[in-house]
């Protein structure tokens, strides 16, 4: 266990160093921007992975919380003149409250019904963004979200925003790692291994799932906040069903129940459109194929799946 902790410490220190080095020395601002998006997506993947990977509960409507974070800060800063730094906790809190209220009945469902329930919830929130145009700007979107500033530091420049986003990613990683290594995390993994046995040792599975659902919503809302102040303009399309599916795809590729997998999944899914020319035409076909192929052949995700295959071929060659 101590080994495990030292190894984690080294990992996170290296991670911090890489962030600092890339942030200071990468010249190309376009790449900085792409990396910033990867950071935001990593937060999303991390949030959903806590729910799907560790608590074993699927959500096909998680973009709703991402959207609540983004629209929350947009509405508060533009309509009510809040400082973004006040809007941040307010937006996160709203997402948490919504998650709590929705979570109580939804998390009683399991399997397909949970999938449909969360899907329906995501759709309703998206319809709300689209139809409540006096507040959200409707289908045409919400313009004029202010840039972030902290005293003399402006986050309008790509580099500072990069540090801000990746700072949150680092904090998010460490926080989630600590949860997983704690009493709560053990109970979560216990639910995953066997819900009956978990209840039999005294784990209140319902309450725990709800807590993780709320936590997951909070991280998603944080990502939404960061997204809104990065692009200054948001529209319902960014938080639609496809956005929820994109989150699921990131988790599935990276591997469920893996913190670093979130980084891998988010990176691949952000970079894929950059690499594949004319990707947008094929975006959905590619996501769909990825989801099916990974789930059929590598249900433990890309990283572990490939490692498994490597192990197997090595063993075969030894014989």
């Amino acid at each position: 266990m101590n080994n495990h902790q030292t190894r984690n410490r080294i990992c996170y220190t290296v991670f911090l160093l890489i962030i600092l080095l890339v942030g200071y020395f990468l010249e190309n601002l376009y790449y900085i921007q792409v990396l910033t998006f990867i950071g935001i997506n990593t937060l999303l993947a991390l949030a959903l992975n806590m729910l799907m990977g560790y608590a074993g509960q699927i959500s096909l409507g998680h973009a709703a919380f991402y959207g609540i974070g983004a629209y929350g800060t947009a509405i508060l800063t533009v309509h009510y003149g809040f400082s973004p730094w006040l809007a941040l906790p307010a937006a996160i809190l709203s997402a948490m409250i919504v998650a709590y209220i929705v979570g109580i009945p939804t998390l009683k469902l399991s399997g397909y019904y949970l999938g449909m329930g969360t899907l329906g919830f995501g759709m309703i929130v998206n319809i709300l963004f689209r139809e409540w145009s006096s507040v959200t700007g409707g289908a045409s979107g919400f313009i004029g979200i202010p840039a972030l500033e902290l005293g003399p530091i402006s986050f309008a420049s790509g580099r500072n925003y990069f540090f801000l986003v990746w700072g949150f990613v680092l904090i998010g990683f460490i926080a989630c790692q600590r949860i997983i290594d704690s009493r709560i995390g053990r109970a979560l993994r216990a639910i995953h291994d066997g819900e009956n046995a978990a209840a039999a040792v005294g784990v209140d599975t319902r309450q725990l799932k709800l807590q993780i659902f709320v936590l997951s919503a909070a991280i998603s809302a944080l990502a939404g906040f960061l997204y809104a102040h990065l692009v200054y303009f948001i529209s319902p399309g960014s938080f639609s069903f496809i956005a929820s599916i994109r989150m699921v795809t990131m988790v599935v590729i990276g591997g469920m129940a893996s913190i670093w997998g979130a980084l891998l999944g988010a990176s691949l899914l952000t970079l894929l459109p950059e690499w594949l020319h004319a990707f947008s035409e094929f975006e959905m076909v590619v996501y769909g194929l990825i989801l099916m192929v990974v789930m059929i052949f590598l249900p433990r995700g890309l990283t572990r799946g490939l490692l498994d295959i490597y192990e197997r071929t090595r063993k075969k060659n030894e014989h």
Partner: peptide, 23 residues
């Protein structure tokens, strides 16, 4: 019905769930 993916020690730690408080 053990928590099969977890270590022996972790199984017993989960067993102490109701006797510990950390949230």
């Amino acid at each position: 019905e053990l928590f099969e993916s977890m270590t022996v020690l972790e199984n017993i730690l989960v067993g102490q769930h109701t006797r510990t408080r950390c949230g």
